[in-house]
Simulated assay, not measured.
Amino acid sequence: MSTVIEQPVEARLVAAAPRMCTVRATLHYDRTDPYAVHMTFPAPATLAGEEVCWTFARDLLAAGLHEPEGDGDVRVRPYGFERTVLEFHAPEGTAVVHVRTGEIQRFLDDTSALVPVGLEHLQLDLDRDLAELMRDAC
């Protein structure tokens, strides 16, 4: 069984201009980091012209489908019945993207099949992680 889920999603970048640019972003989940999801944007979609990856809580993404969530660098909220808004806040500015709610829900369903919500802690090897921390401290 695979330990990673990657799903391309159509992300509509909200700009000051009346039109929205659509890019192909990727949602990524790895059972070895069971609380996190990653959303990667291709280089042409970023100000710096380099691929950008944001990491945030799977719980934040799931909760944001139903009501506004987040008060940090990543915020998620519903936008009507078919879209979800993700806001990414950085010192350089804020990126706002719309993603089809169905695409996000399908991704979350796949992650839950891999690691059920509430059982993420079973994926962690705390002894190994502690040994790694101690090794690096010496």
Rank of each mutant, 00 (worst) to 15 (best):
R12P: 04
M20D: 10
T32Q: 14
V23Q: 07
P91T: 07
P42W: 03
L47C: 14
R128M: 09
V85Y: 05
P78V: 03
F41M: 09
D73S: 14
R58N: 04
G64P: 01
P34R: 00
D109C: 00
D127R: 10
M20A: 11
D129P: 00
M39N: 01
L86D: 00
L60V: 00
E87H: 11
A48G: 09
E67Y: 10
V85W: 04
L27M: 06
P78M: 06
R135C: 06
E92M: 08
P91M: 00
V117Y: 11
R19I: 10
L27N: 02
R135D: 14
V85T: 13
C21P: 10
P91K: 07
A11S: 03
E132K: 12
A17C: 12
E10L: 13
V9L: 06
L124H: 04
V117C: 09
R24L: 10
A57P: 02
A43F: 05
G70E: 01
R77E: 15
T55D: 02
A57D: 07
D59R: 07
Q105G: 08
A17E: 13
W54G: 01
R31T: 08
M39L: 13
L60Y: 00
L124P: 04
G93K: 02
S112D: 14
A90H: 12
R19G: 07
R135I: 06
A63T: 13
F41S: 01
C21L: 14
M134K: 14
M39H: 06
P8M: 03
D59G: 06
L61G: 04
V96H: 08
V99C: 05
T55H: 07
G118N: 04
V14G: 05
G72W: 01
V96E: 11
C138D: 15
T3F: 08
C21N: 14
A43E: 04
P116D: 04
L130Q: 08
H38L: 13
V76W: 06
D129S: 11
A90W: 03
L60H: 02
V117Q: 11
G80F: 05
L124Q: 08
H89K: 10
T3W: 06
D109M: 08
A48W: 09
D33R: 14
V74A: 06
A63R: 15
P91R: 03
L108D: 02
V23N: 10
E10N: 11
E51Q: 15
D59F: 00
T32Y: 08
H98P: 00
H89D: 15
G93Y: 01
C138A: 15
L126H: 12
Y79F: 09
R100V: 05
A15L: 13
L47Q: 10
S112R: 14
H121Y: 10
V96C: 11
R106W: 08
Y29H: 03
D73W: 05
T111D: 01
L133W: 13
L122A: 14
T40V: 03
D127Y: 02
Y79D: 12
I5C: 03
D30L: 01
C21F: 15
Q105S: 09
P18D: 08
P78F: 03
T101A: 13
A131V: 07
G102H: 03
P34I: 05
L65R: 10
L65I: 00
R135N: 13
D110Q: 14
V37P: 03
